[in-house]
Each structure stands twice: as C-alpha cells, then as structure tokens.
Design a protein around this nucleic acid. Structure first.
Lengths: 343, 343
DNA sequence: TTGTATGCGTTATCAT
DNA sequence: ATGATAACGCATACAA
C-alpha cells in the first residue's frame, strides 16, 4: 500500500524514469502517444509525485507563511479560511504563526518561517511600527512579504485590506441620520488601522457640519490585559456619560472594541440603543444573537485571505519582482443595520 | 544569503559530511571534542537541516493532518490553536482541512491528506456514522487516526474530548436549583456528542425526581442551512411556549445551538431569564457581552487540541501500535454562571 | 573515531 | 523521441 513512484511507473511501462517524468510534466520532447500511455497508467494508480523529492530538487517549498495576531478571533480565522482555500487550489501549504500583538514574538515568527524555507510570508503587523527595518530587510533579501488586514504599514509591497475610511464614514453618517450628534469613537492605540478609520469618522462629522470634540475620541491600549483594557474603557466612558454633553452613540473601530463595549455597557444603567446607539467593526455571526442585535461594519475577511494568498503565491513565482508593480487592494466593507442603531 | 548546508559546514570544519551529520545527531561514534566543534559552528551559522532532504531520506514527513468541521468557529479555532502549539513544540507541521459537516467532503479531505503523506490524522467526524469503514481501513493500513472533540464514534483509537455527560448534568442541576422544572433541551440530530449530553440532562432530571417529557427534547438538523435551522427551531419553540405546560428554561447541547437560540428568542416576546433561563455549551468570550450575559458550559478547547496532537505525534512514532493500548481522555468542562440563569 | 559511498524520488542536462 | 546520469541535502551501512 506504499506510495507509487516514478520508478514503479517506469518499470511497468518498460520506459526510463526520465521519459515518464517528462511525460507527466508535458515536455515537448515526448510524443503524444507516449504521454497518453504514461498519463493513463499514472491516473490508474493515482500517482502523486513526492513533494519532498520535488521540492528538494527544485529548491522551492510550495509553502507560504502566514502571521496573524490571534487565530481564535472571528476576523482572523475567516481570513485564514480564505487563505486556506487559495493555498489548496494552488497546491501550496500554509504554515501559520501567531504574533499575539507582540513585536518580539512577531520577529521570532518571521525567523521561524525563514528557517522553514517558506516561499513567501503574509503578515498582519502587530503594530504600525513593529520590526519595520527587519521586515524590510527580509522582503528585499530573503523572501517576499506582503501585508494583509492591517495594511497601514511602511513597507512597499502588495497590500490587501479593507477600505477603512469608507466603513467608518458610512457608519458615522448613519448615526447622524438617525439623529445622534455626540458620537464617541473607540480607537486602538498604535494600531495601523486606526488613522484611516478615525479619518472616516472625522470626515463624516465635517461633511455634516458637526464640530469635533477631542474628548469623544477614546484610545485603548492593546498591550494591556483584557481586564485592564475593559476597566479603563469603562472608566473613560462613564466619565463622559456623566458630563453635561454626554455622548448618544458609540462607534467601534475594531471588532475587539465593538464587542467589548457592549459587555461593559450591559453592566451599567445605560441602555442600547435608547441612551447610546452602538455600531462598529465586527465580523461575528453572533451580532444578530445579541440583544439588541448589533449593527456592524463587516469586513470581507474571507476574500482578504483568498486574494492576499493568491497575490503572494504569484509574487513568489516571479523571477523579477520589479516587473510587477506593487498593488494596494482595498475591499469595501458592508454595513448591516440592526437594532443597536434603531431610531 | 542562501541556506547553509551540511556540506558547507563540513568544508569549513575540514571534516566529512557524514561526520558533521553524525555529530549534529549526537551519534555515539563521534568524540565529544568534535561534536562540540561541530555544534558551535552550526550554532554560529544558525544551521537548520533541510527538512525536505531529511524527510525524503527518513520517509517521514513530520506533518499531521487535522480535519475539523469549520475553522471559523470558536471551539474549533481554539482547538486548532492548541494543536498548533503542540506541533510547534515537536517540530511538526499541520495541514488542516475542513469537512463542513459533510461526509463526502470529509472523505476527500482524508484522501488529500494521505496523498500528502502525513504521519497521522486527527479528525472530528462530520457525523456519528460518516465514513466509518473507510476511516477504519485508513487507520489500520495507511496512517494512524485519532479522534478529538466529537469522540463518540465507532473506531478503536485514541480519543480526546470532553466529559459531555457531566457538563449537561451540572448545567441541568443548576437550572433545577434555581427553580426551573420544565427544561427544554436542544440537540444536534445525528451528532456524536448528542447522546452523552442528553444522558447528562436525563440523569439530572431523574436524580431530582423530575419526570421526563419527550416533547421538551428538540432535535436540530445540522445538514440544513442556517436559515432553515433557525426557522424550524423557532417554530418548535414557539409551539412549546404556547402550551399550558410551557418550558421555563433551555439547555443547548452545542455551541451553535446555544448561541442561535438567543438570537431567536430576542425576536420574540419572551425574555431571558424571566420567561426562559438559558444555559448551554458555548466557548465564546462574547458570552459576557451578551445581554443578559450568557451562562455557559465551557470546553477546554485549547487543551483538547494540545493533548490530541501530542498523542497523535507519539502514536505516529510507535513502531508497534499494539504496545500502547488506546486511551480515551475526557476533559472536564467548566460552568460559568451569568445573568441568563439568574434566579 | 572518522571518512566513503549509496540512495531516498525528483528534475534537468546531456547523450543517443 | 527516448534514455542514461548527475544532482538536490541528508542519513546511514560499511570501510578504513
């Protein structure tokens, strides 16, 4: 029941190994008649080339590395699902690593992947300035790197993410349309996605002639523990709510922040959406199980993974990278309005 | 910047390739002095053996296959995280596949993994009777298979899952303690985990002298679409609620069912926990963001993945599998009581 | 204790 | 159009 090899096929066909190899690789040197015979026998025995031998010979691994912050996270696992599909279709393997939003772990992930001889790396950076020099060095000298998800990062390469600006712009616009005027916005400190998402919010206010109040912009530090983050966010929020000019809506710029703030609010006397309308980035199916159901900005996470992986695989096969200029692909988000922003 | 090979090291050390190889593999044939020299140089140049050459030679791939129903699912992705850690620690790779709860896809996943020459396969079966004969055949003749998560499946092998019985027993007991007597239970049709989880529920009722009402046992068909499933579950539930003897609590035996029923209830006039207390299997952090926060039976998903992977790796390295009898490891669940079951 | 030679399953170069 | 042979990097049986 052991694997069939070229040698086996050659013996059965009474041909040489190299003829069989060339036949299966559709070489112009082999006659159609022979190719047909070879293919038929290979098919019959379900011949599968030994990837280890092949890769050893070719010097490629047909493997790409993917570095994500956390895999047990709805967006990330959906991205991974898309990446998985693309890899499968191209006969590639994936080695995935988790940076846990930590620069040092991130670097060791990259080093590990390089040692694994991957043909390329996809990374969603731990932060806007994590390992910039090192990543640049790897990209230029060792193996191609492309960015996904968190694409606001100083590296010239392919980037696949979402149009953050439009997502928060539309969400903010919606809040204004239902009559909310004091919109608090939750941002990730040092997170690459923050600036564009904040810009969308600011532009929407500006376009609707609402003055901007810096107090309504709340930054949360992802480097702290969940408990610490929740505690600080709650404090900040409660301070605002007690002011004369209390907010009447909340916009979450990341999945994490959007879902956590709901838990925080449920512990307080403020109700959603009566006191505070809530909308934000969130990719969880659970949004509709929440009470009230949560209005969300949904990212095409699967597509991000799928497209990015295809890009990387193609890039890793280019002889000369300068032939193909780098692209930034920003997919559009979709807004799902539910009860948390009901008028 | 290309990789350093044994040949390079040998040249620098003025030794033969085989001496260096043996030295690095700590062979008894090599003197300590030489070993030391070899190791130092290898360390200095960060030598990493080429896995493709090594595997080609050894005939092992150092790769295991993992088949899960869906990866973008909290429990599954947490299991995968544990598996990932174990694999990393043992210098193994993971190729993961998704069966999408479908027997046919499941079979093709197995075939794919066999073609990849994996050293073993971990599987969470699509259903209780999916591909039984084929899986048995693979396990006995091709590559070892172990079961995780959904371990109620007719195959003699290592199994790593949770103690389903105790989980639902305790949850049911809790519902009784807070005074609920008419507990509806949501089950997955044809799902391996169902029987034990249902048994836990039944035993708890029995121990508390509550008579069993078959009408309160609701089966949901995982082969239908989400919309269809939701529709049918809602209908069933509403029918019960209109009866004289309406249920006053719901127990969900899977993550999917527990979270979905919340969404369904929020569309009705019935409130949680006043009309219906809700508790069930669920591994999502979001449980506390829900309103009311959801009481859950939590599975040690990370541990399941970690332990199962270690088991499989060890099993794949046994010369004679019969030396080591198969084990069934059932980890305990934990119950987190929150507002959805408040008295 | 160290070195030489062989082969794992491919692909590719060079005959024939 | 087909076949013999070398090489990829490694481990190992055997020779020295």
């Amino acid at each position: 029941m052991s694997k069939i090899t070229l040698k086996d096929l050659a013996k059965m066909l009474k041909m040489s190994i190299s003829t069989v190899s060339k036949g299966l690789n559709d070489s112009y040197e082999i006659s159609e008649a022979t190719k047909k015979k070879i293919r038929q026998l290979a098919e019959k025995h379900n011949y599968q080339p030994n990837l280890f031998a092949k890769n050893l010979k070719i010097g490629k691994t047909n493997t790409i590395g993917i570095i994500i912050p956390f895999m047990a996270n709805p967006v990330q696992s959906q991205i991974l699902e898309g990446a998985h599909k693309a890899a499968l279709e191209n006969n590639y393997h994936i080695v995935f690593m988790q940076s846990r939003d930590n620069n040092i772990i991130e670097k060791s992930c990259i080093e590990f992947l390089i040692n694994q001889n991957v043909d390329g790396i996809m990374i969603s950076p731990a932060s806007q300035e994590s390992n910039v020099e090192y990543i640049k060095h790897v990209h230029e000298n060792i193996t191609p790197i492309i960015l996904f998800d968190r694409v606001e990062y100083p590296l010239e390469t392919h980037k696949v993410g979402v149009n953050s600006f439009v997502g928060t712009y539309n969400a903010t616009k919606h809040l204004l349309e239902i009559g909310r005027k004091r919109i608090a916005v939750l941002c990730g400190k040092n997170l690459g996605v923050t600036s564009e998402r904040l810009n969308g919010y600011l532009k929407a206010l500006e376009d609707n002639s609402i003055s901007i109040d810096q107090d309504l912009i709340i930054y949360c530090d992802y480097n702290k523990t969940k408990e610490q983050m929740d505690y600080e966010l709650k404090k900040e929020l409660m301070k605002l709510m007690k002011q004369e000019n209390a907010p009447d809506a909340i916009l979450g710029t990341t999945d994490t922040l959007t879902t956590r703030v709901l838990g925080i609010l449920s512990e307080t006397k403020y109700s959603v959406p009566e006191d505070l309308a809530v909308i934000g980035f969130a990719n969880t199916e659970l949004a509709q199980s929440l009470n009230p159901s949560l209005s969300t900005i949904k990212q095409p996470a699967f597509d991000i993974g799928y497209i990015a992986t295809n890009k990387l695989i193609r890039l890793s096969n280019e002889k000369d990278r300068s032939d193909f200029p780098y692209e930034s692909i920003l997919l559009e988000t979709t807004i799902q309005l539910r009860n948390s922003t009901k008028i």
